[in-house]
Design a protein around this nucleic acid. Structure first.
Lengths: 320, 320
DNA sequence: GTGGCATGAGAAAACCTTTTCTCACTTGAC
DNA sequence: GTCAAGTGAGAAAAGGTTTTCTCATGCCAC
């Protein structure tokens, strides 16, 4: 303890925390000696007393981290300045494992929990609604009266389709994922609204091969071919681009293609690199982090669903 | 506290921990009541006394988590049974940020630190060599006298090339990443040894487009074409497969292609799906987790570099 | 010179466990 | 009937910090 090294006992605490009454030369001396011996207070002891562990838990069922990692980066980015560290718990879809991790986090007195996932319209396999610590949901379905952050998929889709319209495309097709995804329906709705129903929506799965196959279907149909494809994610877009190339259709000259997610590893490696919609997951994580911190500190936060706007990332697959 | 709810005071502790002397009916009663009221001991208070926080820190500079996530999954998998939680700290390549995170972890009295990265032959931008907590390195360069876990890239490469030889391929080319990567040189060494120098090694970058371009180079050369490609990672392999398809070369009939990393998102989505070498990162993480736990508990661990064997994942890009 | 007050610094309690120590009571043996 | 040993359970200390309380000193004013 700094006390022993320096002179006094609990006076050290007051000196280092700039609290209490004391001579300024004593305060300075204690601080100097503390710095010299590299004294750092024990966060466990501090937490025991203050009821704040400066620790939060991040719960996710997104094994590959595609969505979780950007969210995590945002959370960490926002909280590191406040001295808060993050427990990451990957729970797959295993309720028992999830419960174990939640219990472990609670035992360690986390100041709050952020739940995140891989899908907006599904809950994590564990009930977090009656915990005595604040819970914030990010990119996963929350509970009644909770704070939930999600991307505004409708606005994102609108952004994409309007872009295609603005560069002069008229026959825009929409190739997307399974219709039971809420975000698929939201994006399709925006597509219909902006594009005006000129082309049908092709529902499928989230894979390159579906993008490939959907292009086959579209180009086998009689009549005019689409001059633009709005794809439900970057993998589908990539499959579509590959299929178009194989058919000798030029991207972006003959057909513009636009993706969703801005999953760099796919979007940037496609030839040509994909124009796509970024869901701003890092910003989403940042806000979730600040919110759980606010709740932990007792500041009031309005419950409800917060939709964060998406952003269009322009690369070369659209021309225009 | 359970004490208040039940009857006595510190007796509760002894009852719940099965220590001390006491009547079995008292012990049972305390346990029962504790279970009823859902009592869970405060890990902070426990840690203060026991000097064990049941917490470790995972430090990584692998932003996209391609390598870190499987390692993390293994660590968590190994340690969750021991009640240990993991702080994940993504430090990019920022020394100042790294130091902040390390300090925060030490303040929180982590029982140990695991350092991981995206490259075997580079250190993290922070010195962990003189900490008073154990440090284990996994998939990143460690320090003198430390415990380091890494994949056996030489053995992995051997596995791949031997497989190609065994299915009858004779003109095996090796397209790989930058020569300054230690693992690139190790893999190339094994390739030379097994394949017998029949083809040159093409060094480049870790991208699909390099795989694509390398195939162009190989097929533009006069003389016999390769009948197999051993690629330095799955992205290169994927670029190569795409280039071959565009040239009308059939995979796997005419040419076998084999990748490295088993990055499912690339390997499984390639047409045909890639046969590839898996570095068993999850197992690597598991062992790193158990090792740091052993060190934290004071059990002796031999320092040194532990090479873990790779495994061949057979899909359809090789035939045979 | 004495009473009041401001000031600086240490003492003590609290946070929640675990562990060791102590004490009262029971039992068995002589 | 007394003594030793054994048993059950509570008391107390410790762990490192923060916060409140107390006390001693010195100063000013009267």
């Amino acid at each position: 303890m700094a006390a022993a090294a320096a002179v006094s006992i609990s006076t050290a605490s007051k000196a280092l925390n700039d609290t209490g009454r004391m001579g300024s030369e004593t305060r300075e001396r204690v601080k100097r000696i503390a710095a010299e011996i590299g004294y750092r207070p024990n966060a466990l002891a501090r937490g025991l007393l203050s009821k704040r562990s400066f620790t939060i838990g991040l719960l996710t069922n997104d094994t590959y981290g595609r969505f979780t990692l950007p969210v995590m980066a945002g959370i960490s980015d926002a909280l590191v300045d406040h001295g808060v560290s993050v427990f990451l718990c990957a729970i797959e879809d295993d309720p028992a494992l999830a419960q174990i991790h939640v219990d472990a986090m609670l035992d360690k007195q986390v100041d709050g929990i952020i739940a995140t996932g891989k899908r907006l319209d599904r809950r994590l396999p564990v009930d977090l609604s009656n915990l005595h610590v604040p819970v914030v949901y990010a990119f996963t379905e929350g509970t009644q009266n909770s704070v939930t952050f999600r991307s505004d998929d409708e606005q994102g889709a609108r952004l994409a389709v309007e872009w295609l319209v603005n560069i002069g495309r008229r026959r825009i097709a929409h190739i997307t994922g399974p219709e039971d995804f809420f975000s698929v329906r939201e994006r399709a709705g925006a597509y219909h609204e902006v594009a005006g129903h000129r082309e049908p929506v092709l529902y499928g799965v989230w894979s390159e091969s579906w993008g490939h196959e959907a292009v086959e279907q579209l180009w086998k149909r009689p009549g005019e071919k689409p001059d633009a494809l709005f794809c439900g994610n970057d993998q589908i877009a990539r499959g579509a681009v590959d299929a178009l190339r194989e058919r000798g259709v030029k991207v972006p000259q003959d057909v513009s293609v636009i993706g969703f997610d801005n999953w760099e590893i796919v979007a940037a490696q496609t030839r040509p690199p994909l124009t796509t919609v970024d869901m701003e997951l890092k910003e989403l994580g940042r806000q979730a982090g600040l919110t759980v911190l606010a709740l932990a500190e007792g500041r009031p936060v309005e419950p409800g669903v917060r939709k964060l706007p998406c952003r269009l990332i322009v690369r070369q697959s659209c021309g225009g």
